[in-house]
Write a protein that binds this DNA or RNA. Structure first.
Lengths: 340, 340
DNA sequence: CTGAAAGCGCTAACAC
DNA sequence: GTGTTAGCGCTTTCAG
């Protein structure tokens, strides 16, 4: 059997409670007893059993994240990789761990979140890509369960961390205008995705400001979907001379289709996307992308979630907005006024 | 307070033990009692507390994975994305969840594995990229802790699932030979990485069989490292006319450098890599890659790990080898005999 | 078949 | 300061 606090107590000739106190860093323990306990703990290579701690403290030190992965198609999406990578990196500096799950669709995703919550497997949850009518949000709020939303939860007040996606799209669109593009289109994600809708808004604003006609197309997430969705767009007589694309992964798809159609970047087609992932370097000349400061975004999300979990009284819901910055690369650099 | 088995018992007018039995699917419970219990459970939306279950059953239903991410550079590595994506997909069909952590280097990675094990946070562990002298393996074996290795643990007997990397490299190299390349080089990963060494072995075998001179270069993992490492190789007078590259992500780096040096694929440089990730489609004409059947690999690993966890007597260590298949794309298709 | 009772390993009153 | 004690919510003997 595994060594327990009881064993340590016996070996150090103190009560089990004292061992617990030493472990908890309780100040009122005599120094020599503390030393004895510490020594025995070290000698016996003891570590408290988190299962017992979890039951007693009513806390697992686990943070949950449930990804929605329709059909395996998102596995190479840099957004998810960056998200996971960053969350675990941040948590590794705390005593929390990440409990990661996937679900095939929204409803089963909601189910998994519900499960995690009700079985008390995790202390708090991180939600990404909130949808317009997100079932997860309601359940979580009803249960007063600690959670933080990365993105823009349109509905009521809750803790969220997000970029200013309207601004990000403004920057992207403005950049294309300044580089001489005029027939600028927008390729967004599925309807009901807040991040996409926010960016469309920003895009429309700038287009209107310059008296240009906005054109918006949608596509499912992912490389293949965007590649397919952009084909009819680029293979038409009045094709746009530039495209603002929802994310890098989708932009890669657009770039591929452009190549297949013999359209050169940035001459025949300007391209700007979002996230500034390393994918942007993979294409000739690079893809201009808006860096959303993902590290900071995730960092603040985790910090906030842990704060909610550990605070006695629930903090008032707050929304934090992380700034973004354009990373200019080859896909959008065209001499001024040479449109078309 | 949260509803417990005790509450259910009271409401259904049975003992708590009976509720537990019903939940456990115990056959010897009178039908009407079972019905009563089930009804109350449904009405009160009851779910057992996994923390209490974990303590009692001495099992958390958590499987641990600790990635090694030197400096954030791996965040876009499709290998990791695919691994995580696939593990969670497989586990979602069981009652297990994934506990994911990252560590900066090998020693802290070993530390995290040790922590997970000793605090009993997880029931079993998955190890990837075993190194020649892997501290993790020893600790885990000493503790008789359930774990499975994805890859080739050179040392003693343990549970592992792997591809036949020697064969995979043979297939890749042979393919280049058949397409008329002769001065074929190999760009591998850091020393001590089993998968790289195995593939070098396969590569050397085929080169020898054809009386060709093998040339092996090494690079750190990742797109940027491979891009940099391949520069002096491709920018020399006696540059290879084809390269077998350790993985797709690195191959993307090589492709980028080739482009920058004005070398065309597959004319000036043939390229074959491994993993067959969606990155292969991103380059003009595509990158030929050996599909390692990752889904099956991970699936079998999880299946095996769960089996080890749940079996009373530890199964005899076994090594499972998953087959692979070449996916031919543009980067290696050159008319026969037109070398150079 | 079913209830009572004994813990799993730990934390946190509560006494002394 | 420190030990004793009472559980956290659940599983699993052990009687009956």
């Amino acid at each position: 059997m595994r060594v327990t606090q009881q064993d340590i107590a016996r070996l150090a000739d103190v009560s089990q409670a004292t061992v617990s106190r030493v472990l908890a860093g309780d100040a009122r323990v005599e120094d020599d007893k503390r030393d004895r306990v510490l020594r025995v703990i070290k000698q016996s290579n003891y570590r408290p059993d988190v299962r017992a701690q979890a039951l007693r403290r009513r806390r697992t030190s686990l943070v949950g994240l449930v990804l929605k992965r329709p059909d395996g198609g998102l596995k190479d999406d840099p957004f998810y990789s960056a998200l996971i990578s960053e969350i675990t990196a941040v948590l590794s500096k705390s005593h929390y761990h990440l409990c990661l799950d996937v679900a095939a669709d929204s409803s089963s995703q909601t189910g998994v979140y519900d499960e995690l919550l009700r079985t008390r497997r995790v202390d708090g949850l991180i939600l990404v890509e909130p949808e317009t009518e997100d079932q997860r949000l309601h359940k979580l709020q009803d249960d007063r369960f600690p959670f933080v939303v990365i993105g823009n939860p349109r509905t009521s007040v809750m803790h969220s961390v997000d970029n200013d996606n309207v601004l990000a799209a403004r920057i992207a669109t403005q950049h294309l205008v300044e580089n001489g593009y005029r027939r600028i289109g927008f390729l967004g994600g599925p309807a009901g995705v807040a991040v996409s809708e926010d960016r469309v808004t920003g895009y429309r604003m700038v287009m209107a400001e310059h008296g240009l006609t906005p054109r918006v197309w949608t596509s499912d997430f992912g490389f293949a979907s965007a590649s397919a969705a952009s084909r009819p767009v680029l293979d038409s007589a009045d094709r746009p001379d530039a495209l603002v694309v929802l994310d890098d992964f989708m932009a890669m798809g657009v770039a591929r289709t452009a190549r297949q159609l013999g359209l050169a970047l940035p001459g025949d087609l300007g391209l700007v996307s979002f996230n500034d992932s390393s994918l942007c370097e993979l294409v000739d000349g690079g893809i201009t992308s808006v860096n959303m400061n993902f590290e900071q975004l995730v960092q603040e999300s985790c910090r906030k979630l842990i704060q909610i979990i550990e605070s006695k009284v629930p903090p008032v819901p707050s929304r934090l907005v992380i700034p973004c910055a354009l990373m200019s690369r080859g896909s959008s650099r065209r001499p001024l006024g040479v449109a078309r």
